[in-house]
Structure formats: structure tokens, C-alpha cells
Design a protein around this nucleic acid. Structure first.
Lengths: 171, 171
DNA sequence: CCGAACTGGTTAAACGTTCAAGGATAGGTA
DNA sequence: TACCTATCCTTGAACGTTTAACCAGTTCGG
């Protein structure tokens, strides 16, 4: 489902093998389903999209539960623009607070509030359970290791070759 | 990055192990990067989001290059609503045409046009190359097999337990 | 046949993301 | 100091997705 038919591009580029096609289909299908599963669980139980939840978690691990916007964006791998919108929403809900950065007047800190921390504590178990149910409970220990390796290999090739409009580091 | 700290939920639910945490991070990171890679490549070279491209491909494999809306939605695993919007856009671009279904007057067929087929032929090689570059070129043959297995296992657990508003079959 | 329930598909509004632009501060370099 | 450029973050508009109705046609039980 990646290509029309015929085994090879006119320009000599290779299509995918049958095996690769099947795996690619499974990949698309599986990742879509899992993402959806998690998004729904969080939306339902916490009223948050997955990425917004990830932002709270990330902040909760940071010193003082606060981070510079750019750091946070890099950590979660989203654009600053997206982060800016997201933090606005989280701020409106009272889970995050913006603070001016003392050492750089351009800077802003995103700080997790007590209310945000409470929100997180409350919704974490359900989320973890969903991750287990959707992924780890279905994989053997060897498969977990394999998946880690595979993802490392994937990531390696896609990392930080700057492109795009907003950024030197990509989404 | 899935949970706040402490090894176990108050209710006795298990957190993820360190290994699992790492793998989960890699998974989130890797899948995000790959999806982004493909979306950008297609947006840049074909002016289409990945899913829209997938719709064209799916149609190109169907008999008469046309499918009932619901079939198409099931094939790609998206909601009917989303499909409806998507087909409207593709129709506006002239790559897909809607036709009334002769056997069921409620039904609509989405048909790939010649122009849509041309579009597909033109953009396929670049897309395949991106899939190779982002995934298959970085995996050993064994890893490809492993990935297939892992995705099958994931999918199995998430498949069709109807929930949500619009549907019996989920996104 | 009649009505209830279901199926196929669309729509409007709310939401989130991207894209392109812009304002403010910082860090050079002359 | 005066500039030029890079960095930090935000904004508004365009786009795509979700959600929750909604209408029309079909099916099934009486």
C-alpha cells in the first residue's frame, strides 16, 4: 500500500519487496492503532491529548518542575510554535504557568503547577496501563529488546538534519 | 516519560521498568520522526499528507479503482467522517470522483481518476525512497522480520473492540 | 405493510497542528 | 557605539481531525 503496481520505478529506484510491503502495512496499521488507543484513553480519562500529557510528564521530571520553552520543545520533539500553543492551553487549564527567565530576557519558563502535578498523578496509572495493554503485555522480553534496537536504528537516520521553516532542529 | 516518578502506583498497578521506559521513549521518538519524515516528503513533493496519499494508493489497487466509502475507510483505518472530508479535498483537486452506488442508494463510491492515477505514478518513487531511507535501509533482514512480528502482536490486541461515537470499528 | 432500529454517508463546530511572519533580546564584529 | 545576524518565543491564518448530530435509505420484527 505504498506504491502502485510494477516492481520498479522507471528511474531504476526499487519498490518494496512483498515482505517489506507486508511489514510496512503492519507498521502503519499498528502504530496508528496504538497511537489512537493512547490518545483516546487519555482524552477520555484525563481530557488531554497524548502530547499534552507528555509535556506535563516532561516538566515533572525537570529541576524545579520547569524548563525553558526551547528545551521542552526539544525534549518532546515538537516545534516551538506547537509548544507555544500547547502551553497556552495548559496554562488556561491551570496546569502550567509561564515565568520570565531571569538570565535571558527573551526566555520563558514553563512551570508545572501543583494542580498540574496532581492532574498527572491522577492520570498516570491509567496511561501506563494503556501502554502495557497496547504494547508491552503483548511482547516477549526478547521482542522488547528487538523493538528498542529497531527504533534506535530508525531514529539514527532521521535525527537532526535541519529543514523546514521555524527551526534548526525539526519537529 | 510516561509516568511521574516512584516505582508503582498507589493502587498497585505497575509502572514500566527502566528497560521498558527506554524502549517506549525510543518508540515514541522513532515513530514520530518517521511519520514526520514521510509527511514532509509527500507534502513537499506531492502536496499531499501521507494519509491522503494512502487513499489514492488504496483506490489504485481496488477493482475499477473505486471503493465504497466505508470499505475505503476500513481499509485505511480512519473514521468515515475523516474520509468524507479527505475525499472532498481530493475531489476538489480532481484526483478522485464520487459516484452513486447502484445497488444501495445510500452508498457512494470513491473512484480514482486518470489524473489521480497520474499523480500517484509521479509521486510514488519519491515516497518509496523515503520509506526505504527512513526504515528498511537501516534494518537488517532479521530486524524486518522481527518488526513484522512485533507489529502483528501489537495490532492483535488493539483491533476491533468497538468504542467511540461514530463507529463500530474505530479509527 | 408499519414502525423501530440500523447502516451509509455528510456536516458544522471545536480543537490541534503547521506555516509563515514578526517583535524582542542577545551576541558578535567593525 | 552601531550594525548585522542569530536566537527565543508568539501570533494568525490555513489546514486537517474529531465529535456529535443529522438525513436518507435499508432491514427486520410484528
Amino acid at each position: 500500500m505504498t506504491t502502485p503496481s510494477s516492481p520498479q520505478g522507471d528511474d531504476g529506484s526499487r519498490w518494496l519487496s512483498d515482505e517489506e510491503q507486508r511489514v510496512w502495512q503492519s507498521y502503519l496499521h499498528g502504530t496508528l492503532l496504538l497511537e489512537d488507543h493512547l490518545d483516546r484513553q487519555l482524552q477520555r480519562d484525563a481530557g488531554l491529548p497524548h502530547i499534552y500529557y507528555a509535556l506535563l510528564v516532561h516538566l515533572s521530571h525537570a529541576p524545579d518542575m520547569s524548563l525553558r520553552m526551547t528545551e521542552l520543545a526539544k525534549g518532546i520533539k515538537i516545534t516551538r510554535s506547537r509548544l507555544s500553543h500547547a502551553i497556552s492551553r495548559l496554562e488556561a487549564s491551570g496546569w502550567v504557568r509561564r515565568e520570565d527567565c531571569s538570565s535571558d530576557r527573551r526566555g520563558q519558563l514553563a512551570c508545572l503547577t501543583q494542580s498540574g502535578l496532581a492532574k498527572l498523578r491522577e492520570s498516570a496509572p491509567g496511561h501506563v496501563a494503556a501502554v502495557r495493554q497496547g504494547l508491552f503485555d503483548r511482547l516477549s522480553p526478547e521482542q522488547v529488546v528487538q523493538l528498542g534496537e529497531i527504533m534506535r536504528a530508525m531514529t539514527a537516520g532521521l535525527e537532526p538534519e535541519s529543514r523546514g521553516a521555524d527551526l534548526p532542529w525539526r519537529r
